[in-house]
């Protein structure tokens, strides 16, 4: 018997929450009826959204109380404006006081909303500090990346500040978008239309093989729910420490020293010890996880 799949990539932010959380447990904070669209978009004669492209609230995951943030990639590319950012910061501050089992952060965003550029950049800085404050208070923040906009720009930095990232093959995680690099540095540097190349540089399989993401998940809402539940069951938020950051520093320095000259995932995967790197884009999720688990550490 096959269980019907619900693509996480294609789902709306609300549908993802409904499928992720225990049935009927979601409670939205500041729902559209109590909110107003961005006046900054209105001043540019652009249509707004009553939730400003992000949904925050509470619910249960596998019975445990969680707070949730879900960005809507289909509104302004999930980009962060003043209201959007403030909702996220408010939710993270709430977590410090409420102490849920975790904050689930469903990131689907290109970063700063250019129409509110300064407000967006400052908001992302406030989100960065709020994520770290939440973790320092002992509440893990789990990033889920698998939406159509990925996690780019400042939201790519935010994702890497979270306790861990669950990503799907379709998920993308980076700083500058390929289009931006192509525009500034030329098509020889990064051909943004070469979809396979974009995935080999920014995609979920690459980030997972490199250890930048904790788990690779099928593009299926139920798979994300299961992975988040499993991660939560094994997680203790350690709190910031000099020793842990020293270890990360060494790991990152070694990685840059070893791989700085590479420009394609294929090269890095070969260097990591993957036997047939050219087969990686074709492998299913379970086969890739088996390869990752068999790599020398």
């Amino acid at each position: 018997m096959s269980i019907p799949r619900h693509s996480y990539f294609e789902a709306t932010a609300r549908r993802r929450l409904a499928g992720l959380l225990d049935a009927g447990s979601f409670r939205e904070i500041l729902p559209p009826a109590e909110s107003t669209p961005s006046p900054h978009l209105a001043s540019l004669d652009l249509p707004g959204a009553f939730d400003d492209g992000v949904i925050v609230g509470s619910g249960r995951l596998a019975g445990k109380p969680v707070l949730v943030i879900s960005q809507e990639g289909q509104f302004m590319g999930g980009a962060v404006g003043e209201i959007h950012g403030a909702k996220i910061v408010g939710l993270l501050r709430r977590a410090v006081a409420e102490k849920p089992a975790a904050v689930l952060f469903l990131i689907d965003s290109g970063g700063v909303r250019l129409h509110e550029a300064n407000a967006g950049l400052i908001a992302i800085s406030e989100i960065m500090r709020a994520v770290l404050a939440t973790r320092a208070a002992g509440v893990p923040v789990l990033a889920l990346v698998g939406g159509s906009c990925g996690a780019f720009g400042g939201m790519g930095i935010v994702a890497k500040l979270c306790s861990a990232i669950l990503i799907s093959e379709e998920g993308r995680l980076a700083l500058s978008g390929p289009e931006v690099i192509e525009t500034v540095a030329g098509v020889e540097e990064f051909d943004a239309k070469d979809r396979a190349l974009v995935w080999r540089v920014t995609g979920g399989k690459h980030r997972y093989l490199m250890g930048d993401c904790a788990a690779l998940v099928e593009d299926d809402i139920a798979s994300f729910a299961a992975a988040a539940g499993a991660w939560l069951a094994g997680q203790q938020e350690a709190g910031p420490s000099l020793a842990a950051l020293r270890a990360t520093q060494t790991q990152l320095e070694n990685r840059v020293a070893a791989y700085a000259a590479y420009r394609d995932g294929l090269q890095v995967w070969a260097a990591l010890g993957v036997q047939n790197p050219e087969s990686v884009p074709l492998l299913d999720r379970d086969s890739l996880v088996a390869i990752k688990e068999g790599l020398p550490t």
Partner: peptide, 15 residues
């Protein structure tokens, strides 16, 4: 702005 920098997760080093 470079592909090799993004390949090694530049957002991770900035984080």
């Amino acid at each position: 702005l470079s592909r090799s920098q993004e390949l090694l997760c530049l957002n991770g080093s900035l984080a």
